[in-house]
Simulated scan of single mutants.
Amino acid sequence: MIEVLVVDDDFRVAQIHAGFVELVPGFRVAGRAHTAADARAGAAGVDLVLLDVYLPDESGLSLLPDLDADVIMATAATDPRSVRTAFARGALHYLIKPFTAEELGERLQAYARYREHLAASAELGQADVDRAVRALHTVPRAERRAVKGQSSVTARLVAEALRRAGAPRSAAEISDEVGISRATAQRYLASLAQSGRVRVTLRYGSTGRPEHQYTWRTR
């Protein structure tokens, strides 16, 4: 399990990003921090830090070299200097807010592949290092499209959100949780229903118009 610290000055944004992380299999949120001081204390023992630039007590860019963990920037800072500084000081990726669960999920899965390549041997040759770097920055074609017109990352995020819910969910609820449009959520949920992994029922509201409800099949 890859342990992640989410660092953002806005507790609501930190909560959203933590929820995105928890949707990706193999990752667990070890904690959330809202200041640089808390991030320094909380980063001990974690594998990865999602780091904002704008923190109340110190810039995340000045904090970055002090963290004994891999770092993905997750920030609204869009100026070229911040981007260059982040990479120069060791950031592996730079995500500009707001981003979706799918966008973060792609980076996290690439990061997991990168770690797997580096852990494959006690001693690495140049080809091993090159493969690890490519894995970090590439979404393989087979993983990019599970079926025509669909992203396997989004499919996994939608499935995991529904599985974790443990109760019927509408497309609107899933779209809010995963960070995709309602139409996209409906498309992926319909695909899961066709595959037999999801059960579809109807719920009638006060207007009498039925709403589809999706439930993950446990068997």
Rank of each mutant, 00 (worst) to 15 (best):
L108V: 00
E177H: 08
I180G: 01
A183T: 14
Y114D: 08
R187G: 04
S151A: 08
A101C: 02
R199T: 13
A142M: 10
Y111H: 04
L202A: 10
I174M: 13
E173P: 00
A190S: 06
A112Y: 14
A171Q: 11
A91M: 06
L162F: 11
R209E: 15
V139Y: 09
L118E: 06
V153C: 13
L118V: 05
E106V: 15
P140F: 06
T138V: 06
R169P: 09
A110H: 14
E102S: 14
R156D: 11
V129P: 01
A110V: 12
S170M: 02
T201Y: 07
G196N: 08
S206E: 08
R156T: 09
S181D: 04
L189H: 00
A161R: 08
R182Q: 09
A101G: 07
R89F: 06
R182D: 06
A122W: 07
R145N: 11
S206A: 10
V133D: 06
R141S: 13
A132M: 03
R163N: 15
S206N: 06
L162M: 08
A165N: 09
R199P: 07
E173K: 04
E103M: 05
R115S: 11
L108K: 00
V158H: 01
V198R: 06
A193R: 07
A165P: 12
K148Q: 11
A159D: 12
A101F: 01
A127R: 13
L124Q: 14
R209G: 03
S175E: 00
P98F: 09
P140A: 09
A167I: 01
Q109N: 09
A190I: 04
R187Y: 08
V139N: 05
S170H: 07
A112T: 08
F99V: 05
E116N: 11
L118A: 03
E116D: 14
A142D: 12
Q150A: 14
G179H: 02
L124R: 11
A142Q: 11
A193C: 04
R182S: 03
G166D: 04
A119S: 13
K148W: 10
T154E: 08
F99Q: 01
R107Y: 07
Y114M: 09
L104K: 00
A193N: 04
A190F: 04
V178A: 07
K148V: 14
T154L: 12
Q150M: 15
K97H: 02
G205T: 13
A146F: 15
L136W: 00
A161H: 01
A183C: 12
A120Y: 03
Q150P: 10
Y204G: 00
H93T: 03
P168L: 02
A185E: 07
P168W: 04
R199W: 13
A185Q: 01
L162Q: 03
L104H: 03
A112I: 15
P98Y: 04
Y114E: 05
L92D: 00
H93G: 01
S181F: 04
S195Q: 12
L202R: 10
A190V: 04
E123A: 14
R164W: 01
G105A: 06
A193G: 05
E103W: 04
R145E: 13
